[in-house]
Simulated scan of single mutants.
Amino acid sequence: MDFKFTKSERIAQRVLVESGLDDPTEFPIEDIILGRNAFYEEKKLIGKEGEIVSVAGRSIITINSNIKFESKKRFAAAHELGHYEMHRKSFPVIFDTEEDLLNWYKAGPLETEANEFASEFLMPSEIFYNECNNKIFGPNIIAKLANRFKVSKTAAILKFVTRGNHPVVIVCCQDNKMKWWKASHDFRYFLEFEKDKTPPDGSVAYELFTTKKTYLEDELKQQIWKSDWLRMKNDDEQDTKFYEYCLHVKSFNYSISVIWED
């Protein structure tokens, strides 16, 4: 697959090569960080998921020991490694909250670059695409990708939108308000999106925020209609079936909806 890579993604690829890694799941992330001449530690942090402090040519990456899930801890560590590789000379102290790590397409340039680095470092694009190629898209694919690369489902979804094998659009909402969206390059429909507006009442996201209804297992893939999220060509166009997988991030009352057509 012929991908176009950002500068941050290319730096992640270089670090993988220099570290002698074909697959980053082969070694613990803390060992990789130590191999890059940075010190790694875990301790309780207040209001932060991770931080990096660089003084006199030495850097310490600290990850919040209160993070419950190893997949989330791995991404936070890879994110800080991205800051180390790209930003330590210009910014001696950088810290990141959970919200910084979630807001991929809303954060400032430093956080966007660190997220892109972490995503490519933990889920190399070529391997990621091969893992989902020739498979029918659905929530089960996201779960398998998350398990394969030892990342969260959120991280797997955000990677899939740029490196997956099926056209999708994702919409991030918080507190029943739409915040940002991202479509894969081959998604050919127009999303009806207005920042801070309530998600459409036919959507799974709207149902989540207004009724607290969540779906599990075989019900994760919910049938919706094109008109629920997407612009119709004209009044005569016949509505068609689409699907929505809505992942709820309880800590910040976020949802990430994946919308697609079979």
Rank of each mutant, 00 (worst) to 15 (best):
P28Q: 12
H185P: 02
P167M: 14
E98F: 05
R36S: 06
W225K: 12
K7I: 04
H83K: 10
V204W: 06
V169C: 15
L21T: 01
D2G: 09
S255R: 15
A107P: 00
T198C: 06
K213P: 00
K221A: 09
A78Y: 08
S125F: 10
S152K: 08
L101V: 08
R14S: 03
G35W: 08
I11E: 04
G164L: 13
I46R: 13
K250F: 11
E51M: 14
M1C: 09
L145E: 00
I142M: 01
T211K: 14
W229N: 11
V168F: 12
C173M: 14
T198L: 06
E9R: 06
S203C: 12
E217W: 03
I141S: 02
D31C: 02
K250W: 10
D236P: 00
E9Y: 01
R231C: 03
P24R: 09
F137T: 02
E42A: 12
I63A: 02
T25G: 00
K7P: 00
D2H: 13
Y40P: 06
L45E: 14
A56F: 07
H87S: 04
R58N: 04
K153S: 09
A56W: 01
F137D: 03
K179M: 15
S119H: 04
F5S: 06
D239P: 00
D196I: 05
L102C: 06
T198M: 07
I32Y: 11
K213D: 04
I61F: 03
E237S: 02
E111S: 15
D218W: 05
Q223E: 13
K89Q: 05
D31T: 06
M1W: 08
Y84T: 06
K226A: 05
Q222L: 03
D239I: 01
K44A: 14
E261I: 05
R74T: 11
E30L: 03
F3H: 10
E111W: 03
E85M: 10
I259C: 02
Q174G: 10
S71C: 05
S65Y: 03
E99S: 07
D201M: 15
Y129G: 02
A118V: 01
V55S: 05
F187W: 12
Q13D: 03
H79R: 07
K89T: 11
K195V: 15
R148T: 13
H83F: 11
L21H: 07
E111R: 12
R10T: 04
V169T: 15
E80W: 07
N37V: 10
W181Y: 15
